[in-house]
Design a protein around this nucleic acid. Sequence first.
DNA 1: ATGAAAGCGCTAACAC
DNA 2: GTGTTAGCGCTTTCAT
Lengths: 329, 329
Amino acid sequence: MTVTIYDVAREAKVSMATVSRVVNGNPNVKPATRDRVNEVIERLNYRPNAVARGLASKKTTTVGVIIPDISNIYYSELARGLEDVATMYKYQTIISNSDNDPQKEREIFNNLLSKQVDGIIFLGGTLSNETAGLIKTSSVPVVVSGTEDNDSSLPAVNIDYRAASREVTEKLVKDGARQFAFVGGGYSEKARHEVMAGMKEVLTANDIDIDDQAVYIGNEQYLDGAKAFEQLKALKPEVILCISDEQAIGLVHAAQDSGLSIPEDLQIVSFNNTRLVQMVRPKLSSVMQPLYDIGAVGMRLLTKFMNDEEIDDNQVILPYHIDYRGTTK
Amino acid sequence: MTVTIYDVAREAKVSMATVSRVVNGNPNVKPATRDRVNEVIERLNYRPNAVARGLASKKTTTVGVIIPDISNIYYSELARGLEDVATMYKYQTIISNSDNDPQKEREIFNNLLSKQVDGIIFLGGTLSNETAGLIKTSSVPVVVSGTEDNDSSLPAVNIDYRAASREVTEKLVKDGARQFAFVGGGYSEKARHEVMAGMKEVLTANDIDIDDQAVYIGNEQYLDGAKAFEQLKALKPEVILCISDEQAIGLVHAAQDSGLSIPEDLQIVSFNNTRLVQMVRPKLSSVMQPLYDIGAVGMRLLTKFMNDEEIDDNQVILPYHIDYRGTTK
DNA sequence: ATGAAAGCGCTAACAC
DNA sequence: GTGTTAGCGCTTTCAT
């Protein structure tokens, strides 16, 4: 049978309270007793039952992670960052895929609360008002990584998409481009909005029109890039800003297949900065956002909430930079 | 304060046992009482405490997942498959990254057991004897996906790497190739062994020598592909079999950069079948293994163990097929 | 420094 | 069909 704290106590001729103290590193134990207890723990191969501990202490040292799709390379990179700092702080993570569906998000959220997690990280490009509302009623701290709610009241970590978009657009306009198009889609509604806004700001400031037709919203997949190109090609865009790397690569290939030269005839910049940008030829010009860190910093922020540490700012904006590689002139 | 089963019982004027029954769908409750209890549950927004339930019932409806690296597109695809069927069976998953380090695997394993998970899925190309031994002592069922232990005694789901390797090699030999090389690395020691074995079997049968120098073992990353090419190029291989897609793509680019034509001068086949194979030009010829299903079937197998269902065979071999795309003639 | 005892919120006999 | 009660394995006052 499983060995309990009681077995250890009896064997070490102390009370279970003392065993509990040595297991939890409480200093109020005479070194001699401590050693004796540790010896018994070792000998009996005693392993504390985290469930019982969780019930008694109301702390489970587990955090929940709500993620759109773990098989998406963008999110799995965030997940790795977040998991590493969770481990660092002795937390385990329960990860669930939501497909960014508010209905599933609600279910996952309730499951997580029922499991008594100490905190929750919400990952996703889109944060519906419905889900944002749910989060605001949460009994445990929640931080949001890679997106934010509409009035930015939730703790969140992001990059400044709009500024990045502005910077890219300015550079390309300065270099002579006039025909811009935009491709977004998938889970990244927030990013989509910001990137478009940044682009439009700069274009407007430069008296450049952007056609309503020059915006394609699909999903974030490779194959969708070809569809995007299909819709946009009639407009003969000189530049396409694209959120998703996979979609951008699809775009590059579709354009090449139709006889265009990249970047001579068409320039493409993506915003997700997954490892993929390096793995195609020409290499994708892209906004480098620190994916791993967005996850990691989000989890660090969450640990602060969970341990009632002081928070200087619950809206963290991480730096980005832009790498102009092979898909821009 | 949090509302407990007591509160519901009092409010509904029944005993907590009855509340427990309706919450757990026990049929021994009069419909009228059931409705009354449900109404109170709704009104009080009662949510069962899974930790308390776990302590009392010794079942947590959570399974542990030990994964080398969730940010690796190969493993994250397995993870998605596994998570989907876990959800289907009402389990949550605690996912931890091991980097395939036996030391970390041990820690994670103990954490998981301490959390009283109902079962564990082990993912990884390499299963050390140390970890295999640990698994065999486990008090909860463990299934292994995408690898196996040395004497194949653990429940596992895989494809037949050796057969796939044989098939590829035969085809390319038949088409005239004589100079073969192999590139492996990263987490996939088992796959590496099998693929090499399959290749050598066929080469030997055809009286073709393979140089010891024609084997490169590194990591599974894109940049490592260039290193592999650097080592192998002097041998002027006509064919390179490569486990990892990322590495294979690196190989393709390095070969092209050195002036070779793919597939005319060099043919490359990879074995991981991540989405990447479609996303490069030329498209990678590869062994198509059902990644999502390897994860999904592994989890399904685990649910059978957890629910004491009958198991017909605990060694599942899933089918594969081979797609000859742009990197083979 | 150590022990006794009261829960934590629930399930699972067992009784009625 | 419903209630009573004894745990599950631990933490946490409160004494001593």
